[in-house]
Design a protein around this nucleic acid. Structure first.
Lengths: 154, 154
DNA sequence: TTGCATTTAATGTAATTACATTTAATTTTG
DNA sequence: CAAAATTAAATGTAATTACATTAAATGCAA
């Protein structure tokens, strides 16, 4: 019996306690799925996340701090993640003209191409979830948001 | 603008894609909350999780493999987590009589006492969520389960 | 019963993360 | 303006994780 069966059982004192564990467990599970999906492309989920943030900027440079603010996992070190992406020649790094402390990072065409490749696989994988109807999907998103918004600024 | 604002915006191609990111993000966020909560007690979330699994066994010993199966994060090394708990004298480790390959782990009274201390703080912290009504809590749990069950055995 | 495959836990190691510190640039303040 | 405080990024390091391998015990099949 694994955690999922544990989750089903009423060994939780409160529904909240169960939800807390369920959110962590499902988050880890999802991360693992993403990890497996990215493995053939030589990217970790954190590196992938940074690449997507850069793409989201639509050619506007973003600083390392900007990346940190948008990362799913604040604890990863954006500076070193960018190093890894540089090694792979997926991004460009240059001094920010407005503020010489800051460093602008821009995604390179090679990075965009790689993301497009991954998009294909990602969309294919997402089909696994198509039997969950859109209304439920929406509800889930709202509930997760509500959970975080219990504390300010999340 | 952080990820939460990003999540609110419609920069996602699909609701599913948004939900995937939301689940990972909220899972990380929740893990961070737990991390902060446990810090004063000198436990990592993974160590805490193992302790709770041991308590859940109600004095029946459980093997390292049994712990692994129940862990929220499969990637952590149960063997080394148990080492850490041993160092802190919160658990006992002994050869399993039925199978000499296996190692039984049992929580010590000191471990139970520590968990009880943490329970107090945990319950206090969970009050933050009390304004989310129980029905929503239930729905969230069901939706997360449904998400995972799209793949078998999760 | 011997040999082979499997299971269980531990361990070696490279990479990553957590956390503190450093360096350099900018902003604020007296 | 000069000094102090703050900010941005990089770096050092200890701990942890990821992944492969090892060692020992068990089960199974010939």
């Amino acid at each position: 019996m694994g955690i999922s069966e544990d989750l089903k059982q009423s060994k939780f004192n409160t529904l909240t306690g169960k939800a807390v564990v369920n959110i962590i467990y499902t988050g880890n599970w999802m991360m693992q799925q993403t990890h497996d999906l990215l493995k053939p492309f030589g990217l970790t989920p954190q590196q992938y996340n940074v690449l997507r943030i850069l793409r989201g900027q639509q050619n506007n440079p973003i600083t390392v701090l900007g990346i940190t603010e948008r990362m799913l996992d604040k604890m990863s070190n954006a500076s070193r993640l960018v190093d890894k992406l540089l090694e792979k020649k997926l991004v460009l790094r240059r001094e920010c003209p407005q503020d010489r402390r800051a460093v602008d990072v821009i995604i390179l065409p090679a990075g965009l191409t790689l993301l497009e490749e991954i998009d294909q696989i990602q969309l294919e994988w997402e089909k696994n979830f198509q039997r969950i109807d859109q209304e439920k999907m929406d509800t889930l998103n709202e509930l997760l948001d509500e959970f975080r918004h219990v504390f300010t600024n999340n």
